[in-house]
């Protein structure tokens, strides 16, 4: 279980990284924290000719308060997000979500940008990106562009990043006042990828649900929103029956979930509904408490 040979470059600027990507095209792979890539290298399931190690781009390691959003540099580790006082204060959902990622030893290396660029549909960060409509900044030869999370995830482990682009930061919108949140997932073991999970936000105005967002993970090729389930509760006075109905809607509206040895397609579909219901219930209680 040793990696095949590859060439290695460790650029010192985003521009250099982009130039290397341009030079090597599909033969190159970006290495950030490496927590997903290096196991694949060890198993020789990933066989890049060139590894572009962006670990020395330390100026992509930051968490910044930008008013109505937090901006997180791509190389900020998941652990830094988890432990950030700024995040704890301004974005408890982001902090909570980070704690669901694997284990501390992984989060100490794994990067926030990397987990989004890796686009594992069972992972938490991509789902959070979809739930919150994060804005993802990528830099290519022509400069920077911003991609909305909804347009970012294409299919399993595939994004709309071009071959010669690199993800540099992510803008994470804060929750508006009166908004409750929840992340729920069910995994075989604590820290495993979810068999199914749901991230929900729910905004209350005068006792009614003014806005709701539901993002599901582990149930498809990409993290998905559940718009019909959201519409079920928006404008309504939240209650248990409504959440159950929303869960059923979420379960019904997702396309065929991927089956694996841990869960059949049918089971995951069912779990998506249960997680949605539980997440809405908790989000509502948080919204009431705010």
């Amino acid at each position: 279980m040793k990696p095949a040979q590859f060439d290695y470059a460790d650029p010192r600027s985003v521009e250099d990284a982009v130039a290397l990507l341009q030079q090597h095209g599909a033969d190159a792979k970006i290495l950030a924290g490496g927590q997903s890539l290096v196991p694949l290298l060890n198993m020789r399931l990933a066989r890049p000719a060139v590894i572009i190690d962006v670990g020395k781009l330390r100026d992509l390691d930051y968490i910044r308060d930008d008013g109505d959003a937090l901006v997180i540099g791509a190389l900020t580790t998941q652990r830094s997000v988890e432990r950030s006082e700024l995040v704890a204060r301004e974005h408890p959902l982001l902090a909570a979500t980070t704690r669901y990622i694997a284990h501390p030893q992984i989060r100490n290396r794994g990067t926030f940008g990397g987990s989004i660029a890796h686009a594992d549909p069972a992972a938490e960060c991509p789902a959070l990106a979809v739930a919150l409509d994060m804005q993802i900044t990528v830099v290519g030869p022509g400069g920077a562009r911003v991609i909305a999370a909804a347009d970012f995830f294409v299919t399993y482990l595939t994004t709309s990043l071009e071959q010669d682009e690199i993800l540099t930061d992510v803008r994470v919108p804060k929750l508006t006042p009166g908004t409750g949140w929840s992340i729920q997932e069910v995994a075989r073991r604590h820290g495993d990828f979810a068999m199914a999970g749901a991230i929900c936000t729910l905004t209350l105005e005068r006792g009614r649900c003014a806005a709701a967002r539901i993002a599901l993970f582990g149930v498809g090729a990409v993290p998905v929103r559940a718009p019909e389930a959201e519409q079920t509760i928006i404008g309504q006075e939240p209650n248990a029956a409504l959440f159950e109905e929303a869960g059923a809607r979420a379960s019904a509206e997702i396309s065929e979930p991927l089956a694996d040895i841990h869960g059949s397609s049918e089971f995951r579909r069912h779990l998506a509904g249960v997680m949605t219901q539980r997440a809405l219930t908790e989000a509502f209680s948080r919204a009431e408490a705010r």
Partner: peptide
Amino acid sequence: LTGTFMDYLLPTIHE
């Protein structure tokens, strides 16, 4: 189908 520790699940301290 369970050729890695991601799929052959040993109990952890949580379980």
